[in-house]
Design a protein around this nucleic acid. Structure first.
Lengths: 193, 193, 193, 193
DNA sequence: TATGAATGAGCGTTCATTCAT
DNA sequence: TATGAATGAACGCTCATTCAT
C-alpha cells in the first residue's frame, strides 16, 4: 500500500520534471513557469509545491543534472596537459552555462553565492567540478607552489570570469576560450624569473 | 534658453536621485520603490520614467556612484606592497558590495555580466576598478611574466569569488579578507621552483 | 468538493461585482476604478484579473445586466400598437443607455460594433433586444412586406440614431422620443400610394 | 510682416498635417500619436497644441477630408436608380469608414454622437452626406410619403448599422453591401398592400 | 497528497495635455 | 509662436507562493 502511494508520488514528480524539461527544450529555461509546468503535467499548482520547495528547486535540479552530464564526460577523459587543452575540454560546459543569461544567473546564485541552507544540485555539481579539476591537477600538476585544491578554485574563478564577459557589452566579441586561455596560462603556468 | 530648461531638468533629476538615496539610507537598497521615490521627490511617476529607463537604471546609477567613491579613496592611496595590504585596502569596497544580497546581485548583473547595450555606471566603475589595479601594478609589479592588465583582471575575479562566498551557506564563516589573501598570494606571488 | 470551491469562487466574484455596483450607484459608471473595486471587495488586484479579462469586461457585464432588466420589463408588457406607444416603452432603456456619455460609448463599442471574439453581455442583450422587438412585430405586425426580423433591426438602428443625437451639439434640444417617433413612423408605417 | 509670420504659421501647420498623414499612410490611423507627429514635423509638442485644439481635432480634420473626397466622387455621379446601385456607390465610403475599428469609433463619436460645441469636419461631412442623399432623392424619389430629408437620414442610419455589424463577431461574415441592400430596400421601397 | 482560487506588492506603461520660459 | 519637461491617473501585468478544503 505504502509502496503504491509512493509509486504514484514518484510518477507525479516525474511528470512534473519531464513537463519542465519539455518546456525548456521548446522555449528555453526562462520560459519555464510553474503555471505551464503543472498544465502540461496535468496536476494542480499546489501539487508542484508539494514536490518542490519552490520553483528554483526544480530549476536547480534540472540545471544541476545537466551540468553533471558534462562532468561525466570530463571525468572519462584524461587530464589535460596544456591550458589550451583544458580550455577546450571546458568549453561544452561553459557553453551550456551561458546558453541563456537566466541560466548563468541561476548558476551564480546557487554556486558561489548560494544562499540556501542545504546544498543543492548545482552547488554539489560545483563541488564535483572542483574535485575533477583537483584530480586533473594531481595527475598533471601545473603548479607545485600551491595546492591542487587552490589551483582548482582558481580555474573555477576564471571560468566564471570568462563566462561573465560573454554577457558584457564591452567584451562579448572575444570567445570564451580566447578569454579563458590567458587566464589559465597566467594562473597555472606562471613564469617567474 | 536651452540651458534654463536643462537646469530644471537637472534639478528634477537631482530631486529624484536624492529621494532615492534618502530611502536607501533609511531602509536599505531593497526598500527603494519607485512609488516612494516619486512621492518624496514630489514628482509624477511619469517623470521618473522620463528620466530613467527603469528602476534598475537608477539603482545602477546610485550603486555605481557609491563604488566610484570607494575608488576615489583607493586612487589617493599609495599602491599596496603586499597582498595583505591590498586585501585590506579592498575591504571597504567589498563590504559595500556585499552589504545586501540584493546589492551584490545588481552588481553582478550590471558589471561583468552586463547584457545591456549601453554600458552603465556600475560597468563603467568596474572598468575603472581594473584601471586602478593596473596602475597599482605598474607602480608595484608583483609579477613580471604577465601584464599588469591581466594581473588586475585576476584580482577582480578573485574579489568577486571571495565576495560570492560570503553569501554561500558553506563558506560564510570565513571573512572576505581571509578568503581573498590566499587567492591573491597564489595569483600575484607564484613561487615556482 | 468541486462545488465547494466553485462556491467560494462565485462568492468572490459576487463581492467584486457588488463592490463595482456600489461605486457606480454612488459616483457613476465612469468612476468605477479597479483599485477601488478590489479595495471595497476586500480582494487582491490579481483576483480581479483572475475573474475578469480587464476592467471593460466587468463594465460590459454590469451594463449588460442592467439592459437585461429593462428588457425583462419590456418582455412582460403587451406589444405596442402604435409607434408612439413603442417609443414610450423604449424610453426607460434609452434613458439608461444615455445616462452617461461613457456608458453610451461602452455600449456602442460592445454591441453592434463588438470587436471581441466572444460575444459579451451587452452584445447578447442586443440580440435579445432584437428578439423582443421581433416578437412584438409578430404579435402586432406593422409591415407585412418585410420580415419582423428586419423591422426589428430597423427599430434598433433608429434607436441608436436617436440616442446618438442626444450627445450631438446640434440636436440635443429635441428629446429622444421626439426624434424617434418620426423614424419609427416612416419605418413601420410607410404610406405608399 | 504679419503675412510673413502667418506664412510660417501655415507652413508649420502644414508640416504637422503631412507628418500625421505620413504616419497614417505607413501605420494606420491608430498609430498617429502626437509624439510621433511632432517628431516627424520637427516641432515641439507644445507647437502641436498651438495649432490644434487637441489630437482629435487633427484626427477629425484628416478623416473629414478623406470622407469629403469620397463625397466629391459621389457628387459627380448620377443619382442611383436602384437600392443595389446606391449600395454600390456607397461602398468606397463605407470601406474607408470601416478601414480601422479606431476610425469607425472616431466617426461615430464625431458624427451623430458629436459632443463638441463647434461642428467639426466629420460632422460637416455628414451634413454634406445627407445633402447628397437628399439631392439624389429629389432627382430619383424612392418614397413620396416622407420627405427626402428623412429618407436620407434613414439611409445614413442603415449605413451605420451595416458598418457596425462589420466589427461584430456574430455578423462579420456578411459583406457590408449584402447587409445594406435589404435595409435600403425596406426603407426606400416599402411594398405595402 | 492533491487541489486551484486567492494573494501581493510593486513595476512599467500610456500619451494627451499643460505651463512656465 | 515655439518650446519640451513635467504631469496624471489609472491600468494591466507578473507569477511564485500560500492555504483552506
Amino acid at each position: 500500500m505504502a509502496k503504491a502511494i509512493q509509486k504514484r508520488t514518484l510518477e507525479t514528480r516525474a511528470r512534473l520534471v519531464s513537463a519542465a524539461k519539455e518546456i525548456i527544450r521548446e522555449n528555453g529555461f526562462k520560459a519555464m513557469r510553474v503555471e505551464e509546468v503543472v498544465l502540461r503535467a496535468g496536476t494542480a499548482k499546489g501539487t508542484f509545491f508539494a514536490h518542490f520547495q519552490d520553483k528554483d528547486a526544480l530549476m536547480d535540479l534540472i540545471i544541476g543534472e545537466q551540468i553533471n552530464e558534462f562532468l561525466d564526460q570530463l571525468h572519462t577523459q584524461p587530464a589535460p596537459q596544456t591550458t589550451a587543452q583544458m580550455a577546450d575540454m571546458l568549453m561544452p560546459l561553459c557553453r551550456f552555462m551561458t546558453c541563456e543569461r537566466y541560466v548563468f544567473d541561476v548558476i551564480l546564485r546557487y554556486s558561489g553565492a548560494a544562499a540556501q541552507e542545504e546544498v543543492g544540485p548545482i552547488a554539489t555539481s560545483f563541488g564535483r567540478q572542483i574535485e575533477i579539476f583537483t584530480e586533473w591537477l594531481y595527475r598533471h600538476p601545473f603548479r607545485r607552489d600551491i595546492s591542487p585544491d587552490l589551483q582548482a578554485e582558481g580555474i573555477h574563478s576564471f571560468m566564471i570570469q570568462a563566462m561573465a564577459l560573454k554577457f558584457c557589452a564591452l567584451h562579448n566579441a572575444t570567445s570564451i576560450t580566447d578569454r579563458l586561455v590567458p587566464y589559465l596560462d597566467a594562473w597555472l603556468c606562471p613564469k617567474v624569473a
